[in-house]
């Protein structure tokens, strides 16, 4: 597949994600189940197109899609949308969480699209199987945090509407949303921890030190600590489990995003993408 064609398919998937967000929003505003079903179908369409882009790039470049800014953001979004589609398939009441997850996915895809789309040369420093392990855990962790933020946001919205969404989704105890928010954060916390650990092992092999307080390492630790605080709040203050933690997860995801893609704009770091 040529780069131009891949670029077109990529933007089509981004448009599909944006359209699915619009449909989720319409379902929530107009209380129509038809919009909700359509939103899920459009998300699936976007996801399949997105998968095609990632697979084609992987085959053509010969390396996993984590090397450039574009690839890293695209892969994290892919993990997030995959997690969302998977859980909404199992738990139908979580479908409407797309209203929180899909705008984040659309923004990330748009942001990814502003970076060079061309095939990046894999620098020799990154030619290691640890790249795949380290970056996969990072993308999976952020993917979980994105969906957790989506669930948290929808939980807040549902509480605000006070039962008016029961026409489009089965009437579900709001506690179920809190539980899924917690589950996703816990899973993301595990993945993110594995990302930090695998990065430390790789750094030790490559540089002879496992930790160097580099800004990227530091902000990954800060993100991990923030989510550790979330877990401690969950286990300690039962009264804060609902609204507070929903807000917390919706905000903390921006710190996770900053640690992966924002740090380079403010700090000098030895962690570099291919471009």
């Amino acid at each position: 597949m040529s780069q131009t064609l891949l670029s077109i398919v990529f933007w089509l998937s981004t448009i599909a994600y944006a359209a699915s967000f619009a449909l989720f929003a319409m379902a929530a505003v107009f209380h129509r189940k038809r919009f909700l079903d359509l939103a899920v179908t459009v998300t699936w369409t976007g996801f399949l197109l997105h998968t095609a882009v990632i697979t084609a790039r992987w085959i053509q470049t010969g390396h996993p899609p984590f090397v450039s800014y574009f690839e890293s953001m695209s892969a994290s979004t892919w993990f997030g949308v995959a997690a969302f589609l998977l859980i909404q398939q199992k738990k139908e009441f979580l479908r409407v969480a797309g209203i929180g997850a899909m705008p984040l996915a659309t923004i990330l895809m748009g942001w990814a699209g502003t970076h060079p789309f061309g095939f990046e040369i894999l620098p020799v420093g990154l030619q290691s199987f640890w790249l795949f392990i380290h970056a996969s855990f990072a993308a999976a962790g952020v993917g979980c945090f994105i969906v957790a933020a989506g669930v948290g946001f929808f939980r807040l919205y549902k509480a605000h509407l006070n039962g008016r969404l029961d026409q489009i989704i089965e009437s579900t105890d709001i506690q179920r949303y809190d539980e899924f928010n917690f589950r996703l954060v816990l899973l993301g916390f595990l993945f993110y921890g594995m990302m930090v650990a695998s990065g430390a092992i790789w750094a030790d092999l490559a540089w002879g030190r496992y930790w160097g307080w580099d800004p990227i390492e530091l902000w990954s630790l800060i993100t991990w600590l923030l989510y550790a605080v979330y877990l401690h709040v969950y286990f300690t203050w039962r009264g804060l489990r609902g609204r507070f933690l929903a807000w917390y997860s919706a905000i903390a995801v921006f710190v996770a995003g900053f640690s992966l893609w924002g740090v380079r704009f403010f700090y000098e770091t030895i962690h570099t993408y291919g471009n």
Binding site: W213, D214, I222, L225, A228, V229, E268, I270
Partner: peptide, 20 residues
């Protein structure tokens, strides 16, 4: 944990010697 996270954010503004 919160204190550690906040102090890490503050300290991140200071050079670490790792980079120039």
């Amino acid at each position: 944990l919160a204190l550690l996270a906040i102090s890490s954010v503050v300290f991140s503004f200071f050079p670490t010697g790792q980079i120039d």
